[in-house]
Nucleic acid binder design. Structure first.
Lengths: 144, 144
DNA sequence: ATTGAAAATGATTTTTACTATCATTTAGTC
DNA sequence: GACTAAATGATAGTAAAAATCATTTTCAAT
């Protein structure tokens, strides 16, 4: 999905649910869509405040829940006790390698796996909205 | 890995590290190896207390950390804010479908995906110890 | 443009799961 | 059986997520 489409989807979602758009919300959405990392709330708040210093933690928290509910953001937990947010990719899905030593997160994508997942889900009579594939281990620098 | 092998691995691990075996620890390990679900600490504690009512939360917590460190248990987070524990499967790996409405967790396994993962990791120069594949969506009962 | 109802905000509190602490008990070696 | 190190369990501490609430803002209907 392209950025413009995401914003349109979001607009539609807000309108359908009778929600309002505010300057804070817009700022948070803007900042979030500019990230390309798996950002946590604290960091997101920090960046938003560079634009608009009066935005509160709760608003960022709630806005991210909103984006997640609408489907333009995804929550992730990589096991370090923090929830991270990521936007859904422009077209294809990507997955993660997490180095358990240095914490480095790498992305990859593979269409074959995507396809297999769909196949499996169909067999199980399960409708997939979203998925997570994470490989945990050692990156090239950390193994020896 | 067979149950007997897991217990042996655990024994070896304890001995190497100079750790001791206690009645509490044994009870927890016993109960854990009998579960076939993705159990959280609270539930595990409850079951252990049916055998030995004096076992404390902290002991269960620490024992599960121990089992995780030794490699016979795996910690998982499915996004509901709780850490769940699972034993490593007897032979092959399995993955999960999680219904976001009713919370039902189903398991599946697919050798092709396992194989593709290894291939991908090799290309990226990454050594995989462990992985998680989770499909989030609606089970047959919850979609309509 | 004004108004009024509903939603949003931000500061704060509450909750919850996880982790750390510490005095006491226990295990296992000598 | 004594000694030393580890384990236990009760509880305190933490940190992130979720809830609360008085005040402010949005936006549709006038």
């Amino acid at each position: 999905m392209k950025l413009a489409d995401k914003k349109e989807l979001l607009q539609k979602y807000l309108h359908e649910k009778g929600l309002k758009s505010t300057t804070q919300r817009d700022a948070i959405i803007d900042v979030f869509f500019k990230t390309n990392t798996h950002i946590n709330l604290e960091e997101l708040l920090k960046r938003v405040r560079r634009k608009n210093p009066k935005v509160g933690y709760a608003t960022v928290y709630r806005t991210m829940k909103l984006l997640t509910g609408c489907g333009v953001a995804i929550e992730r937990q990589f096991g370090d006790g923090q929830t991270r947010y990521e936007h859904i990719p422009d077209d294809s899905h990507h997955d993660h390698c997490i180095c358990v030593k240095c914490g480095k997160i790498m992305e990859f994508e593979n269409q074959k796996i995507e396809h297999l997942q769909k196949e499996i889900a169909e067999k199980m009579n399960f409708t997939v909205n979203n998925h997570k594939l994470e490989l945990y281990g050692f990156c090239s620098k950390c193994r020896d």
